[in-house]
Every structure is written in structure tokens, then in C-alpha cells.
Design a protein around this nucleic acid. Structure first.
Length: 833
RNA sequence: GCCGGAGUGGCGGAAUUGGCAUACGCACAGGACUUAAAAUCCUGCACUCGUAAGGGUUUGAGGGUUCGAGUCCCUCCUCCGGCACCA
């Protein structure tokens, strides 16, 4: 037999799978489905190691579940709209569509060369009209449901990208994609009402616990940011206005000794008009406007404020309290106004000290009473109410509810919840995206494009501005249109949709990818959805995963879909690291997957990336580690070669084959122990590194076995059957990880069908038991001896064997035995004094 | 500050239910084969005392529960991630 030649084996099986459509998925209600999905790639140019890891992990599960008898859907597509295509186009004078399609074809070839088991017939690309037509349709459905609106608001503007960003796309004040600084702009745009779903999205997090990584659920919960409290109206003295505040501490209302408004709050200027503070306030507001947003919102920033000249009335004490404006109050959280309780909030205390404002304690801790005159730290935990009228003596936790009830009775406030989550801005001022299917008519206003006129085609014969300005705004052929309602001349919307809209529903499209009648077919959705296992990077913990969950809930409300969540289980894989940093072109620490495939083969590449670390942890690249995996596959090939003649001469496996040979019994035991370990590791634990380690141990055992096999005299049919079973098991266990070598060995054994649908080995517990057991003997919990006992020995027998062991006798002879614990099948612990 | 995750040999990591800590791999050292090298195979490899047999110590630190703790509980430290002048 020739040596292990991956260069001929791998392409051979890849074309076999393709020709035979080995991974084609079809709806079949008599078979249990399994939908495995990895986050679809952006066609950026070439595959990188992160992709290999992402798709390698997914492919193990897909191949395993197929062998387990499931009807597996494992599709692939391209998240193909987006800025890099435009930027590359400007640099290379190549059209974004051309650039994108070229990259797709390069990356398709690369994915194929990895031997990934995709149903290529379902391939999609979000930039093609047959896909974005349905993205537009989704937009219209949202619009009908009242979940889409336009507003003029403060938006995040990335100068480098020349477009607006959603809040979720701003990371530490910078653009998520280009890292450029983000500035505020006041601009009109389209929004999705994701805030309507804040509660359900948060509630869903609870149900996903245990199925999604806690880290992701925490991040989403933090992002949604629900807080419980009250809304309270404060009357302005001498005017007909009220200021509404949100507070999480209604119990401290008696201690509210002043109020603070955000500088952007419309009442600030209004209140100061005509007072002697008017000029000061104007100066202050202008100054804050000019301040850098990052600096202003950082905790280190100095707390600065100005008195507005107005007073409000504390609704419970009836006292006049001064109204201020300060830089630390934010317009876009709560109501943009706060009541200040300096005794029980650190910022308020700092502010009160700085501007000599009154402080009143209304909650006392149990032990050491607070003194307003010298407190430096606000008391912000629970205690007993004081100085609070009829609420005195109540526990503050309890008082929260009571105060809210009281406020409601006197109609100046109510219990309320507040979210940090803002609506999702989906307008982008760029070209390479899904056109928003809306027409603006002078007569009729905003008019949605009728469904039967979709898609609104993105024109391809355009010239891009050199700073990325969208050509759509000046392309009359595009924007000039007729109003669908009145037929008059009208203007098309020239903003495009955020690419995250395209990726928020693509997993539904995969269930009937080629359907040109509708976005998705109900029977297909009902059968395939939800995705059983989703695999992708943690960088989408908030963005893509939150948006997709939102879309799914809307689809549910629209009656399209039954499930509450799109992704039942989520696995977030770690990054691929080299020399301590994430692989990236700028750091120059990139390993090209093609090179690894060229030198070692796809099987080695896959094996290494699955073996080097558990899937969710970061993985440190190691050239020597790759060598090690290659060495392992060569060892597999070699031992297989050593046995192939014996295996092929064995008959077919029957149920009742027996042997008395110790070595063969041990071989069969190791075989079945390995089946158990590998099955659990893939199916339950998703821990592929230990699955591979178990297979390596199995192979090491086969090498040990080989020595005794050569000496074994009774090399009969039954013996060969056991050997055959072991090797066939090895091949099948290896198949999800290293599919090419597995197919090759499988066919060398004479099998005529591909390994793809062969049944996964069945674990038989009876074969894993032995006649003798190794029992550890401990003295006071420390291992002192190991003894072998018969598997059928009673606890009493084991105990006496342990106590009568010569070494144990020696060590216990002068000591009093206080207790003996026998753990069946494991150990004996002798407690001595 | 709040929330989440983690801390085990020289390195990546294992220990699934409280029961032999360090599986598997890498690196390293010695040996076999070879004119030589590569490849391959064999042996060793947590630390420490010891020629050895054997002993002692060790899972970030310190306590606790238990016959027995990497695993459970308490206090603390460090690192990673998220949120945060969030009212």
C-alpha cells in the first residue's frame, strides 16, 4: 500500500462528494431534522484561520449528526453587502459587485478544499437581487406592522466610513469596522422599533440560559439594561411646566434637595430665560456642546454644572429645590433629568459639595448613623427610612413600593421601568447595500413600494465618489420615479439598509433558498427552524445575535414562524492567536490556510485546529502542533496498513463472536471505551480536543496490540473479526474530524458506499467491563497501594484484601484503624490515627 | 462600581457525578536505525530529598465542610470580556 498521500486522497473525495451531492438536504417529515449553521462569512478576499476554526467546528457536528441518522441541513452563503467592497472598489477601480463575486468564487474553492460538508445547492449571497428582494420585503412587513419609522435625531457618524452607525456599532466611541472616531450628528433616518421588544428579548435570555454561553447572555442583558424605578413629576415654581424624572430610588424622594437637567434638555434654556442666570446658562450649554463626547461621558471627567435660575417643588416635602444643568446628566437615558439625592448617591454628593447644595439623610444604616455635615461617601445601600414623613421606620426596599403607590394616589408619578436599549438606526448613506423600498411623494408623503414591484434594483452602472459618497443620491435614473399611490413624479429613498438587516433573517432563507415566490416557505420553516446549533465568533454577541432574535420575534408575531428563538444552542468559538495576538494582516502574524492545506492537507489542518484547544477558548497557533497532528494521521495510516490484510480476510461481523484472549478482550474494551468517550465529547460536551485525544489513545493502544497480535497463535476468524471491528470503529470515529483519510481507508476495506451516511458506532457497555479491577488503597486520603480484585468481589472482600495487603499492614501496624471507606470499583480509604 | 468567565507542568491542555491530579499533544533529554541527516521507533520528563528503593510537596492565596476537594462553601488576589457620570 502506498504511503499516506493527502494530495491525491483529498481532491478525490471532494469531487466524489460534489458529484454525488452527498450533503444535499431535503425536507423529509419522517426523519428527524438537525439544522447546523455557522455564521456566514463576509467575502473579504480569502479564507483565514478563524474561518477554518468556525467551519471546522461546525462540520464535525454536521458530519456526526448525519452519521447519527439525522436529516442534517448544513448550508453556506455570503454576507455580501458592506463597506469593504466599496472601499476596495475605490482603491482598485473595480466595481463592488465584481470585487464581491470574485472573492466569493475564491473562497468557495477554499471552503471546498477543506472538505466541508455543505449543501451547496442552497448557497445564497445577500447582495444578489434574488436575496435582497426579500430583505426589502421584510422591511415592508415591519413597516406595515408599525415597527419602522423616520426621525431626526442625534446619530453616530463615522467620518472615515461616511455613514451613520447604530448604537451597537459604536465600540468605545469608535467605529466597529474601521476603528475611526465617531461623532454626533443631527440627522434624519430610518429606525426599527427594537425597543418595543426590549422586555421579550430580555425574557428570552433567561430561557436561553444553559444553551447559550453565559457571557453572551450577560452582554445582551447589559445592553438591554432594564432598571426598575419610578417616574416622578416635579412642578416648576411659578410656571405651568413640570419636569419628569426617572429614578431607581423612589424611596429617597424626601432627600431630593435639587434637580439636574441634561444640557440638551429643552427646558434648560427655557427656564433660564429672563433670570439673571440666562447668560451663564447659555455659555455653559454651548461649552458642553463643544466638548468631546468620549471625554464628557468618562467617569474621570469633572462634574460641571450651572444653576438655571429656576426652582422646582419636591412633591413630598413641599420644599423649593434649585434646578441645575450639568454635564453628567445624559439626554438619551431616562428622561434627561434627575432628582438629586446627595446623601444617597455619590455623584449627587460630589456635585452638592462642589456647589454648596443642601444634603439630607433619609435612609439610615442599621449600625452607624450618618451625619450630613461630614459625610464623604454617599450611603447607597438599603437601610431604614428617616426624615420621610409617614414612611419613617420602614425598610427602604419595602418603601420603594409604598412610595410609588403614594405617588400614584396623588397623581404625580408611578412605578416604571427604563431601558438602556435604543431603537436600531438602519439607514446607511452608502451605495453597496439593500435599497430601502420607500418612495417620497410631495402629495402622499412616504409611500412603501408595492410588494409586486420588488426588488428595487440597486443600479450597477454607477461611478463611486472617491470619499465613498453614495452615487444613488445623484443618479436620476435611480431616484426619479413615480409615486405608487398617485402616479406623480416622486423621489426614491437613496439610503440603503444596514447590512445587519440582511444577516438578521438569512437562516430562514436557507430553508428554501431558491424559492422565488416568497421569502420563505412555511412548510420548510416549520420543518427546519429553529437552528439547532449555531456556531460563530463572540464579536457578534450583541450586534448580529440581538438583531436576529428581534427579527425572529417579529416574524413570530406576524405568524411566519412558531419558535421564540432562532438559535436553540449557540457556541462561540475563541480567536486564533499567534505570538500572543489575534492573527491579522497589520500584525503580520497571519498563517494562510492554503499553505497548511498544501503542505499537510485539509485533514491535518482540521485536526490541529480542533485539537489544540477546546472550541470556546482562544487557540494559540503552533507550527509544531500541526506537525504533531500530521504525524498522528501518518501513524493511523501505518497501523491500518499493517492490519489491512487481516481485516479484509475476516468475515462479516456477527453478534455472538467470542474470545478468551486477554489481548483481544482488551482491544475490544478499549474500542468501546473510545466510542463512549468520543460520542459524549461531540454530542454532549462539544469538546473536540478530548475526543481527538481519546482517538489518539486508541491508536496508541493499537500499536501496543500489534506486538501481541504478531505473537498470537489463534489468529482465527473470530480474532480477525474483533480486529476488524476495532479498525472500522477507528475509521468511523475519525470521520467527522478527518473525513478524507477516513473515506479512503473505508473504501480500501472494500466498502462501496461513502462513509458519510454510515451509522455511527454503537457503544456496548458489556464490552467495557473487565474481570479484574484496580483498586486504590489510601491511608487518610493518600494513595499508598494499588491492588487488583475480582470485579465480583464484595465490599467486605475488598476491605479485607486491602487491610491484609503487606504494605498496608506494615504502615498500619502501630496505628489505630478508626474507619474504612470502600467505594465500589474505585478505592478503599483507611482512616488511621 | 455592577455583571459574566477564567487561574492546573517549560507550553497547549485533561480530570464528565466530591474518589489515583497532570490524560493527549508539543517542546526537551537519552537511546535504536543510518556513513550522516531527515523521517521513524523506544525510554524518560510536575517540583523536591535520595545512587536507588522510597519519601515529602503541588491545581492563584488563605480559611472551612468531608474519610477524601482542582471540583462544594467563605474571604481575598490576578487576568480576560461586557456595561457604566445609566439617575
Amino acid at each position: 500500500m502506498p504511503k499516506y498521500d493527502f494530495k491525491s486522497i483529498e481532491p478525490k473525495w471532494q469531487s466524489y462528494w460534489e458529484k454525488n451531492k452527498s450533503f444535499k438536504a431535503e425536507r423529509n417529515s419522517s426523519k428527524k431534522k438537525y439544522y447546523l449553521l455557522e455564521m456566514f462569512p463576509y467575502p473579504s478576499g480569502k479564507i483565514h484561520m478563524g474561518h477554518v476554526r468556525n467551519y471546522g467546528i461546525g462540520d464535525v457536528v454536521a458530519r456526526f449528526m448525519r452519521m447519527k441518522g439525522f436529516n442534517v441541513l448544513h448550508p453556506i452563503g455570503w454576507d455580501a453587502f458592506g463597506l469593504p467592497a466599496e472601499n476596495a472598489a475605490i482603491q482598485n477601480k473595480k466595481h463592488p459587485a465584481q470585487w464581491t463575486e470574485d472573492n466569493i468564487s475564491t473562497m468557495q474553492t477554499q471552503l471546498r478544499s477543506l472538505g466541508l460538508s455543505y449543501d451547496w445547492d442552497r448557497e445564497i449571497a445577500t447582495c444578489r437581487p434574488e436575496y435582497y428582494r426579500w430583505s426589502q420585503w421584510c422591511f415592508l412587513k415591519f413597516y406595515e406592522k408599525g415597527l419602522v419609522y423616520r426621525k431626526k435625531s442625534q446619530v453616530n457618524w463615522c467620518n472615515a466610513c461616511n455613514t451613520v452607525l447604530a448604537n451597537e456599532q459604536v465600540i468605545d466611541g469608535c467605529c466597529w469596522r474601521c476603528d475611526g472616531e465617531v461623532e454626533d450628528r443631527f440627522q434624519e433616518g430610518w429606525f426599527f422599533k427594537i425597543t418595543d421588544y426590549a422586555d421579550r428579548l430580555l425574557e428570552g435570555c433567561k430561557h436561553l440560559s444553559g444553551k447559550w454561553p453565559e457571557q453572551v447572555l450577560t452582554m445582551q442583558s447589559n445592553w438591554i439594561g432594564k432598571s426598575y424605578g419610578a417616574e416622578i413629576d416635579f412642578k416648576i415654581k411659578g410656571k405651568n411646566e413640570t419636569i419628569k424624572v426617572f429614578t431607581t430610588r423612589p424611596d429617597t424622594l424626601y432627600g431630593a434637595t435639587f434637580m439636574v437637567l441634561a444640557p440638551e434638555h429643552p427646558l434648560v434654556t427655557q427656564l433660564s430665560l429672563g433670570t439673571n442666570q440666562e447668560i451663564e446658562v447659555g455659555k455653559f450649554v454651548n461649552k458642553v456642546k463643544q466638548e468631546d463626547k468620549l471625554e464628557r461621558t468618562s467617569e474621570k471627567g469633572e462634574k460641571k454644572g450651572v444653576f438655571t435660575g429656576a426652582y422646582a417643588v419636591n412633591p413630598l416635602t413641599g420644599e423649593d429645590i434649585s434646578v441645575w444643568s450639568a454635564n453628567f446628566v445624559l439626554m438619551d437615558y431616562g428622561t434627561g433629568a434627575i432628582m438629586s439625592v446627595p446623601a444617597h448617591d455619590q455623584r449627587d454628593l460630589d456635585f452638592a459639595r462642589k456647589y454648596s447644595l443642601p444634603i439630607r439623610v433619609v435612609i439610615q444604616p442599621k449600625d452607624s448613623p450618618l451625619d450630613e455635615s461630614n459625610m464623604t461617601e454617599a450611603f447607597s445601600t438599603n437601610g431604614i427610612m428617616v426624615n420621610s414623613g409617614s414612611f419613617n421606620g420602614l425598610a427602604s426596599e419595602e418603601a420603594k413600593k409604598k412610595v410609588c403607590e403614594h405617588l400614584e394616589d396623588i397623581k404625580i408619578g408611578k412605578a416604571s421601568v427604563n431601558f438602556r436599549l435604543r431603537d436600531w438606526g438602519v439607514s446607511r448613506q452608502r451605495y453597496w447595500g439593500t435599497p430601502i423600498p420607500i418612495v417620497r411623494c410631495d402629495e402622499c408623503g412616504l409611500v412603501p413600494v408595492p410588494e409586486d414591484e420588488l426588488p428595487v434594483q440597486l443600479p450597477l452602472d454607477v461611478k463611486l465618489g472617491d470619499r465613498g459618497q453614495s452615487p444613488l443620491t445623484t443618479l436620476a435614473k435611480f431616484y426619479k420615479t413615480q409615486c405608487p399611490k398617485c402616479g406623480n413624479l416622486a423621489r426614491r429613498e437613496t439610503d440603503t439598509l444596514d447590512t445587519f438587516v440582511c444577516s438578521s433573517w438569512y437562516f430562514n432563507r436557507f430553508t428554501s433558498a431558491k424559492n422565488n415566490q416568497s421569502a420563505f416557505n412555511k412548510d420548510d420553516l416549520d420543518y427546519w427552524m429553529p437552528v439547532d446549533q449555531y456556531v460563530g465568533g463572540i464579536e457578534h454577541a450583541i450586534l448580529h445575535l440581538l438583531y436576529s432574535r428581534f427579527f425572529h420575534l417579529v416574524f413570530k408575531d406576524l405568524g411566519f414562524i412558531k419558535s421564540d428563538e432562532p438559535f436553540d444552542r449557540l457556541l462561540t468559538q475563541g480567536m486564533v492567536i499567534k505570538d500572543g495576538a489575534k492573527m491579522s494582516k497589520s500584525k503580520g502574524n497571519v498563517i494562510d490556510p492554503d499553505e497548511i492545506i498544501q503542505n499537510y492537507g485539509a485533514d491535518t489542518a482540521r485536526l490541529f485546529i480542533l485539537f489544540a484547544a477546546p472550541p470556546s477558548k482562544d487557540l494559540e497557533w503552533s507550527d509544531q502542533g500541526v506537525e504533531g497532528c500530521y504525524r498522528f494521521l501518518k501513524r493511523v495510516w501505518k497501523i491500518f496498513d499493517d492490519f489491512i490484510i487481516d481485516i479484509k480476510s475476516a468475515g462479516s461481523i456477527t453478534k455472538d463472536y467470542k474470545t478468551d484472549s486477554k489481548e483481544l478482550l482488551e482491544l475490544r474494551r478499549v474500542t468501546h471505551v473510545t466510542i463512549g468517550r468520543v460520542t459524549d465529547d461531540i454530542q454532549i460536551r462539544m469538546q473536540f480536543n478530548t475526543a481527538i485525544a481519546a482517538i489518539m489513545e486508541f491508536v496508541n493502544h493499537l500499536y501496543t496490540f500489534r506486538d501481541s497480535w504478531l505473537l498470537l497463535k489463534d489468529n482465527d476468524d473470530c480474532s480477525r473479526l474483533i480486529v476488524k471491528e476495532s479498525f472500522e470503529t477507528l475509521i468511523l470515529l475519525l470521520a467527522p474530524f478527518a473525513p478524507h483519510i477516513a473515506e479512503e481507508m473505508w473504501s480500501l476495506l472494500g466498502h462501496k458506499t461513502s462513509i458519510v451516511q454510515v451509522e455511527w458506532p454503537v457503544f456496548n457497555k458489556d464490552f467495557t467491563t473487565t474481570e479484574e479491577l484496580l483498586i486504590v488503597v489510601q491511608l487518610n486520603g493518600k494513595v499508598r497501594q494499588r491492588i487488583t480484585v475480582s470485579a465480583s468481589a464484595s465490599q467486605e472482600v475488598i476491605k479485607s484484601l486491602a487491610l491484609n495487603d503487606s504494605k498496608i499492614k506494615e504502615q498500619t501496624k502501630d496505628r489505630e484503624i478508626k474507619k474504612v471507606i470502600v467505594v465500589p470499583g474505585k478505592l478503599v480509604n483507611i482512616v488511621v490515627k
